[in-house]
């Protein structure tokens, strides 16, 4: 079995009307043996930007620490919060630094991008494990349940979802996808990012 499947886990992000959502399962396993049902893979970067790291669990923690450091350095030097597009480039170049000995992670990024007029517009992106960026307008998926996530998301998602509807859509997509994946599941966490607040909810899921 590939290293990418070693610990299991999946992440998805979706665009809504003036909001974005990012969600993941909570399982940590070693092959088929489940170790933890509370292993979070999504981390806040700024108040309006989150990143998810599905893949090898040791690299989840390592990359979280690497990006915390690099984002802090950026914030200090630039004296402003990092924007989603810039952060995506940072993720890409950080991963490409390890082109021939990569971190086994496929990051998913979701946030609100500040426009020149001062308003916010939804932004999502994902990269592969060496940093090739996928800017998507609708949704991005990664992890061991990615195929299933694609199938359900393509069926449930529609443009212009309000925060509460987006929450329901991303939750249903994730839960039904991970229930068909042996390496993902054991509960889930969902973050819906709007311009004035982030709604975070933990979901109970099937424990089999």
């Amino acid at each position: 079995m590939s290293i990418m499947q070693h610990n299991g886990g999946s992440v998805i992000a979706m665009v809504g009307k003036d909001c974005v959502a990012i969600a993941s399962d909570l399982r940590l396993g070693v092959q088929s043996l489940s170790i933890s049902s509370n292993f979070e893979k999504i981390f806040p970067v700024t108040e309006r930007l989150y990143v998810g790291f599905p893949g090898l669990a040791t690299d989840v923690t390592t990359l979280r620490e690497v990006f915390r450091y690099r984002v802090n350095m950026y914030t200090i030097k630039e004296e402003r919060a990092i924007e989603p597009t810039i952060f995506t480039q940072l993720v890409s170049s950080t991963l490409y630094e390890r082109r021939f000995g990569p971190y086994f992670i496929e990051p998913v990024i979701a946030g609100l991008q500040k426009t020149p007029s001062g308003s916010y517009e939804p932004f999502i992106a994902a990269t592969d494990l060496i940093g090739c960026i996928n800017f998507a307008k609708d949704f991005v998926v990664a992890g061991t349940a990615s195929e299933k996530l694609f199938g359900v998301a393509e069926g449930l998602w529609e443009p212009g979802l309000e925060p509460e509807d987006l929450f329901e859509t991303i939750s249903q997509t994730l839960m039904n996808a991970v229930d068909r994946d042996a390496f993902s599941g054991w509960g889930a966490i969902v973050h819906v990012i709007t311009k004035d607040k982030v709604i975070t909810r933990k979901l109970k899921g099937r424990m089999d």
């Binding site: 195929e147 299933k148 694609f150 199938g151 359900v152 393509e154 069926g155 449930l156 939750s171 249903q172 839960m175 039904n176 996808a177 229930d179 068909r180």
Partner: peptide
């Protein structure tokens, strides 16, 4: 080929799983 895309969607829409 697309079983893994379609089946979880059906679980949700036909069996009302997670609803």
């Amino acid at each position: 080929a697309a079983q893994s895309l379609v089946q979880p969607f059906l679980d949700n829409q036909i069996y009302f799983k997670n609803q």
